[in-house]
Amino acid sequence: MMLPVPPAMRASAAKSPPPMKTVVRRIKFESELDLAFGERVAERAYGQKLLSCIQCGTCSATCPLSHYMDYTPRKIIAMTREGFKDEVLNSLTIWLCASCYSCQVQCPRQIHITDVMYALKREAIARGFYPAHHPIPVLARSFYERVFAQGRNTESRLLITLYLRTNPLVMLREAFLGFHLWRKGRLSLKKESIAGRKDLRKMLNAVEHGKKEEPL
C-alpha cells in the first residue's frame, strides 16, 4: 500500500541532501575589542545618550530597511557600545540606512541613531571599509566631489558617474527611464553650478584646517 508522501518530504527527496554545515568557532576575547569605541562614537553623534541604550529594539522594528541588514540597528548600537569595531564598520547595515530618522524620533532614549550611522559611514569610507564598487559609498563620494566642485548637483550626471564607477550595465537598464524623463522635460544634462564656486571651495577647504575628524 502506498502512503501519501508529505510534500515536504517529496521536495527534499527530489533534491540532493543539503550540504553538511561546517562548524564555525565563535567567541570574542576582550583583547579583540576596542572598549573605548562606543564612547568615541557617542561623542561624534552628539552626546552620551548612545550609552543609555536599553536594547528595546524600537529602532529595528520601526526601520523600513532593517530586514535587509546583517545586524539590526539595535545590534549595531550594542556592538558599538561594547567595542565590536571591525564588525560594525564592515556591516552592511550602515550602508542601508536611508536617513529617514524614524528610529531617532521613536527611540525611548532619544539616541541620535541616524547620526551614529553617519559617523560609522564616514569612518568606514575614510578607512575604505566597504566592498569595491559598492554603489552607496560610491554614490556618496561622487556626489561629494561634484558638489565640492560645482556647488550644485546635476542628477543626470551624478547617476552616469555612479553607473560608470559601479556597474555600467545598469546604465542600459536605466536608459529607458532616462529617455522618458527627458521627453517629459524632467531630465537635463546641463551642468549646474553656482557663481560663488571659488568662495565655496575656500570655505570647504578651511574645514580641512579647522576640524578634521580623527580616526575612531
Binding site: A98, S99, Y118, A119, K121, R122, I125, P137, L139, A140, R141, F143, Y144, V147, G151, R152, N153, I194, A195, G196, L200, M203, L204, A206, V207, G210, K211, E213
Partner: peptide, 25 residues
C-alpha cells in the same frame, strides 16, 4: 541668490563639518 546644494544625506557621509558648512552657506 546663488544658492548651493544642501548636501543631502550623502555629503554628511563623507565629511560632517563640510556638510554643515555647505548648508550653512
Amino acid at each position: 541668490d546663488d544658492w548651493n546644494c544642501c548636501g543631502a544625506t550623502a555629503y554628511v557621509s563623507i565629511d560632517e563639518t563640510r556638510a554643515f558648512t555647505l548648508a550653512a552657506r
